Amino acid sequence: MVRPRSISDERLLTAASTVTGRHGPGFTLAQVAAEAGVAVGSVAKRFGSKDGLLQALCVEATRSAVESMRTASAGAGSPLDGLRAAAVSVYVGLGDAETAANHLGLLGMDIVDPVRRALLGEHFTAVETELRRLVRLALKELPGAPGPARAARTLLDVINGVSIDWSIRPKGKLADRLEQDIDAVLMGWMK
């Protein structure tokens, strides 16, 4: 008979996210296990390796980003406010500049690994798809938008670029910077 899991994947992935924020690409499974309050073998058995854990983190980041976008847009007053709130929500959870830089430091590792690069592509596609849906809802307020597909891609480029730039040259809060740059694009499309 198989013993039920007493330690959830969510608990282990939350611990892994916290640890990668502290240590960047040099994190260890031992650090993740300590953060989760479990034995190293529990983490290794669940994910197989550090690479397996990173793949699971990629999948979870995608799920979490889309969920965050949907929650943020649902709580907004208008479709345009929903689009703005969703775009800001994607990376606002990166934390302070050092934590953001550590999380984004994994990006280099993801890009050179074919499996994680594909998962990163799925992440960008999922975020872009949600942005496209929200752009369609806000089109009446954005008469100058280039169309949902191109507008979504442009907004994705802005939020990706801002998050990387801010982690290297942090001034103020990431959310404020995202709002300012997203608003600069959206204001141009309102004309």
Rank of each mutant, 00 (worst) to 15 (best):
N102T: 07
D113M: 04
F124I: 00
D113A: 04
L107C: 01
T125I: 00
M109H: 06
M109P: 00
A85K: 07
G77Q: 11
D113G: 02
V127Y: 00
G108N: 06
L94R: 01
G93Q: 06
V115D: 12
A97F: 02
E98A: 14
S89L: 02
M109A: 13
Y91L: 05
A76N: 06
V92M: 02
L104A: 08
L83S: 07
A86N: 03
M109Y: 08
A118G: 03
E98G: 11
S78P: 01
A85V: 01
V92I: 10
F124T: 00
P114E: 08
G105F: 11
V90C: 04
L119E: 15
L80S: 09
V90L: 06
A86V: 05
G82T: 07
V115E: 14
D96P: 00
L119Q: 14
A87G: 13
D96M: 01
L104Q: 06
I111H: 05
D81Q: 08
N102A: 12
S89D: 02
D110S: 15
G93V: 01
L119C: 04
E122T: 10
N102V: 06
G82D: 01
A101N: 10
A118R: 13
M109I: 06
G93D: 03
G77I: 03
G95K: 00
L119D: 10
V127T: 01
D110G: 15
E98P: 00
G77H: 05
A101Y: 12
A126D: 02
L94N: 03
R84L: 14
G93E: 02
E122D: 11
A101T: 07
R117K: 13
V112Y: 05
G105T: 13
E122P: 02
G82P: 07
L107N: 03
G75K: 13
A100P: 07
A87Y: 08
V115K: 14
L80N: 03
A85C: 05
F124L: 06
S89W: 01
Y91E: 03
L94D: 06
L106F: 09
G121A: 13
G75Q: 15
L107T: 11
D110M: 15
A76I: 12
A97I: 06
S78A: 15
G108L: 09
T125C: 00
L120N: 12
V112H: 09
L94S: 04
A74R: 15
D96G: 10
V90Y: 02
F124W: 01
A97Q: 04
L120C: 05
R117D: 10
L80F: 09
F124K: 00
H123L: 10
G75I: 14
M109E: 15
P79Q: 09
A87E: 05
Y91S: 11
E122V: 09
D96N: 12
R117T: 12
V90N: 05
A126T: 03
I111E: 09
V112S: 11
L119R: 15
L80W: 07
